[in-house]
């Protein structure tokens, strides 16, 4: 079923929410006909080009400063990304192809804790593998909830959140 944004979305940009410890940025990422996942994996640049950037302090996540017509964000500084459902579907299909289990995970980042489901190969004992994949800078967490550590009323939910590996302090799984 086509959604309003799928039908209208210009193919060179997608609109997502980025989070750091202090801010929520809503912006369109210039993807130039590639998928957002591909742009995030692109090792030739450490930045993402943005358009129509709105900035919200994390303690007032519905306030909006902006818009700024153009911007750039350092990939390494992103804590996590909330994907719109249009992109979520793509991510879920990709993950389902791997025929892995979905196991509950708990992740801590600076200022945020994330709970959700992650793909896990049955019988695998080595949790750190999730953090060592060379190609996957951002780990997809399904049915995810992100909660601010010090402001518990500040929380966000999505069918898929992409968590920056570099920001992960602790990752626990429950594969019992």
């Amino acid at each position: 079923m086509d959604t309003v944004s799928q039908i209208s979305q210009a193919i060179d940009r997608v609109t997502v929410d980025f989070f750091t410890g202090s801010y929520r940025f809503s912006a369109s990422v210039i993807v130039n006909k590639y998928s957002l996942i591909n742009v995030l994996r692109d090792k030739t640049t450490n930045h993402l080009n943005l358009a129509d950037v709105y900035i919200s302090p994390i303690d007032k996540p519905s306030d909006m400063i902006g818009p700024y017509p153009r911007g750039a964000i350092a990939k390494d500084e992103i804590s996590f990304i909330l994907l719109p459902r249009v992109l979520e579907r793509v991510g879920q299909e990709r993950l389902q192809n791997q025929k892995q289990l979905e196991v509950p995970v708990f992740i801590t980042l600076p200022f945020f804790e994330i709970q959700g489901l992650s793909q896990w190969r049955k019988g695998d004992q080595d949790v750190k593998k999730l953090l060592l994949t060379d190609t996957q800078k951002f780990i997809p967490i399904l049915q995810a909830k992100a909660q601010h550590t010090y402001l518990p009323t500040v929380n966000f939910q999505s069918s898929i959140i992409l968590v920056n590996q570099l920001k992960v302090e602790l990752l626990c799984i429950d594969d019992a």
Binding site: M1, D2, T3, V4, S5, Q6, I7, S8, T15, D17, S26, Y54, P61, S62, L82, P84, R85, V86, V154, F156, Q157
Partner: peptide
């Protein structure tokens, strides 16, 4: 496109009758 509980809450307070995601289907 900005669709979280807090966004909807503020929109309704501002006077919106309903708040929908741009991912809502046409139907």
């Amino acid at each position: 496109a900005r669709y979280q509980g807090v966004d909807k809450e503020v929109a309704l307070k501002a006077g919106a009758t309903d708040y929908l995601s741009k991912d809502t289907s046409q139907t």
